[in-house]
């Protein structure tokens, strides 16, 4: 069954450039499943556009990419899109926030205010890059394990899996990426990436209904 999905993709600094690129795979998957994908990217990732889309289109799944904190998730130039004071915007939705720390306070508050579920990270979301590849996220092998592990949450939800299923698949993918880098076949200089994958795996969580699906 087709569902409405809202995805935000700011792209104004090195971090958001990577998240912007990673989200392309998610959008392609969503379109392949015939979902209605509403994409806010670049300058359009502002509060007015975000709230407008939430209120008019009433998406079932909200995928947020961007800088955040315990109390908010931001868009272009760190403009707040949703905060603990406007958490009711996420009512009746499943939200996945690829943002720092939002699962610490915003997530639980959103669920208390009616969000079906909120998947995110309780700590700073962290990833590694190769310094000579930072202008080209597509070619950066140091960042690829992170893309693989975090995208699987969105992709799992798009495929119709439950919130808990999406979370478990992502945790498993983190494990797999860490194990791959521990193998003797992995280059030595990539093995240090493992700790930072664990960092994200360790702080990933969800609140709300684990059986929810779109």
């Amino acid at each position: 069954m087709s569902s409405k999905i809202l995805i935000t993709r700011p792209n104004y600094d090195p971090v958001t450039a990577y998240l912007y690129y990673w989200a392309s795979e998610v959008i392609d998957t969503a379109k392949g499943y015939s979902h209605v994908v509403m994409e806010l990217s670049g300058l359009k990732v502002n509060e007015k556009e975000f709230v407008g889309h939430i209120q008019k289109a009433k998406p079932k799944l909200v995928l947020l990419n961007g800088h955040g904190s315990e109390t908010m998730i931001t868009g272009h130039n760190r403009e707040p899109l949703v905060t603990i004071d406007t958490a009711e915007l996420l009512e009746d939705k499943i939200t996945y926030a690829l943002s720092c720390s939002a699962a610490k306070q915003l997530g639980p508050i959103a669920v208390k205010q009616g969000a079906r579920a909120f998947i995110g990270y309780e700590n700073d979301f962290t990833f590694t890059t190769a310094r000579n590849r930072e202008g080209n996220p597509a070619k950066d092998k140091r960042a690829e394990p992170f893309k693989n592990a975090v995208n699987i949450v969105s992709i799992s939800l798009i495929e119709g899996n439950t919130v808990d299923g999406a979370y478990q698949r992502s945790q498993q993918r983190f494990h797999e990426e860490i194990r791959k880098l521990a193998s003797s076949a992995a280059k030595n200089e990539n093995k240090d990436v493992r700790f930072w994958l664990f960092w994200d795996m360790d702080c990933q969580k969800y609140d709300g209904d684990g059986t929810a699906r779109i």
Partner: peptide, 19 residues
């Protein structure tokens, strides 16, 4: 010691802290 063993060409991007 573990951090010292990290290659010098890795950047760690930590959301609120930066690169």
């Amino acid at each position: 010691v573990r951090l010292q063993a990290m290659p010098s060409d890795i950047s760690v991007h930590m959301g609120s802290v930066g690169e």
